[in-house]
């Protein structure tokens, strides 16, 4: 599978990462290598293998609907770079 620099720029944008042109070139190569390596799996015949969605053979891990203590508002907001009247203040969205 060929990976283009455009793909890398697109993925970086989705992840809100700023990347320089040099980095794009470098990551394109590195990511291409990774994909190529994983690509080997496609050689296997998996026609009769159930897709695996979780590596653990565990199901239905549930908890009771019981209230546990939350953090205090002060604790919640303590990592917020900008805080206003009990809320996180974030830049305008649109």
């Amino acid at each position: 599978m060929a990976l283009s620099e455009k793909d890398v720029q697109y993925v970086a944008k989705l992840a809100r990462l700023e990347v320089t042109d040099q980095e794009v070139a470098k990551y394109t190569q590195q990511l291409a290598n990774i994909l190529e390596y994983v690509e080997q799996l496609n050689k296997l015949d998996t026609a009769n293998v159930e897709p695996l969605t979780h590596p653990l053979d565990v199901k239905n891990v549930f908890r009771e609907d019981k209230v546990q203590p939350s953090l205090t508002q002060q604790e919640v907001l303590s990592n917020g770079p900008e805080v206003q009247s009990g809320h996180f203040r974030v830049p305008k969205i649109m």
Binding site: R63, K66, V67, Q68, S70, L71, Q73, V76, H87, F88
Partner: peptide
């Protein structure tokens, strides 16, 4: 998680 779901409480008080 075990945080409450009560409506109308003070902002960011049902958060973990």
């Amino acid at each position: 998680c075990g945080c409450r779901t009560t409506f109308g409480n003070e902002a960011n008080t049902q958060v973990c």
